[in-house]
Nucleic acid binder design. Structure first.
Lengths: 221, 221
DNA sequence: TTACACATTTAGACAAGTCTAAAAATAAGA
DNA sequence: TCTTATTTTTAGACTTGTCTAAATGTGTAA
């Protein structure tokens, strides 16, 4: 069964919302994700429910059905593979790949995606450090923490970001922070939770709690 | 000004129709190209005319305006560059690239296309031998004839096809005819205009007039 | 030049996705 | 539990692109 561009975006939105702590996607949450009105969302949820992609009860919100999950993870797979292509092959900076991948992810061809995956060397993470689901929709798991959970003295390696906005990524460029950057945590301020880090060499930088929350790291022994 | 997927397809259709002998695209011709009804075409021609992309007079048919030509050639540029990508990088056979490129051509990003062009080594022809317009929309011209215009004794090199249907291209695969294949014309039958060719080595094959018409060749001295 | 065939346009309708405004349901505080 | 604030849904309308059926225009053969 063929889904429209729009339907696909709704499924992806619901997936994103229910991926973490939230178990059920509310109408308003979806509306914010797809940047539309709550009324439009209600209509679409009804439609997607009729088609079997989501479980939806009036006033109770929506979750993806198994079919819905499949569609959403395949979209994410396509999105992230295209991001790798744009970054690795076409040399786009990481802050520019998301927007173009939003278009490319809707291209319809299984053969295309499996060939692209191969061409790229079956990458397991995209340019932001997000895992790329395999063709069965399985994600690679990884031991990671957001940088606001660390303590003074710990050594960490940047492995991802939880925010893909151009502004945030450009700010990281400015700080010369990218995937693979290693830090030692020098201090965590009680007052505003800002964190002072020392880069591999000697440079020191201080970031706000806001920034730390959006940086994913893994611990180094 | 942003065009919809559908509007772009109409402009491309009018371009294709008026590219050769026909000077004006009639409603029915467009309807056949975009695979829709004449009534729908009339509506769309009115709209595209209002927006300044075509010159259209009731009952007289349509031609592209300068802006329309620009849009259409950029679409063709994108289409053919993606075809090169699919064929050269992802190793799709030439009969499969068209369909996927029909989707990819609508992706919107000038930067993407200029990077893709570079990544591919600024190719000047697509996998079917069609010239790729440059970013100003200029086409490379080439001395070429369709194979039904040749005479016995002439030596030719296959440089293109005028038909991109999967069936036709698969038939050529079967005959082991591809871009760059060299032939000597052995005989042209008066009766049915079928042509007997000798391949570089020694193999001989006979093709119908229908096939010959759709093969583009250039002469070898 | 008339008559007919064919091409084209108009009229009216429909589906998808959107909107605003109003109504209804739910949640939360006193 | 009652009242109010917030969320969600419904109602009705609009846009885009499509359709069929009917009306109109154009071109050609007799």
């Amino acid at each position: 069964m063929l889904l429209t561009f729009t339907e696909e975006n709704y499924l992806k939105a619901i997936f994103k919302i229910t991926e973490r702590a939230v178990k059920v996607a509310s109408t308003n949450m979806v509306a914010e994700q797809v940047n539309t009105s709550a009324a439009s969302v209600t209509d679409m949820l009804k439609k997607l429910s009729d088609k079997g992609y989501i479980n939806y009860e009036k006033y109770k919100g929506a979750t993806l059905s198994p079919t819905g999950v499949k569609v959403a993870t395949q979209l994410i797979r396509k999105h992230r593979l295209w991001e790798v292509f744009l970054h690795d092959k076409l040399k786009f900076p990481w802050e520019q790949v998301h927007e173009i991948a939003e278009q490319l992810e809707h291209i319809n061809s299984d053969d295309l995606i499996s060939r692209l995956d191969n061409f790229l060397g079956n990458p397991r993470f995209d340019p932001h450090g997000d895992p790329i689901p395999n063709s069965e929709g399985k994600f690679m798991l990884r031991n990671q923490t957001s940088l606001d959970m660390v303590h003074s003295g710990q050594r960490v390696l940047v492995v991802g970001v939880t925010q893909h906005s151009v502004d945030f990524l450009k700010y990281l460029n400015q700080l010369k922070v990218k995937l693979g950057t290693a830090f030692k945590v020098m201090a965590v301020t009680d007052y505003d939770k800002s964190i002072t880090l020392e880069k591999d060499g000697a440079e020191t930088l201080t970031i706000t709690h806001q920034v730390a929350k959006n940086l994913l790291v893994k611990f180094q022994k």
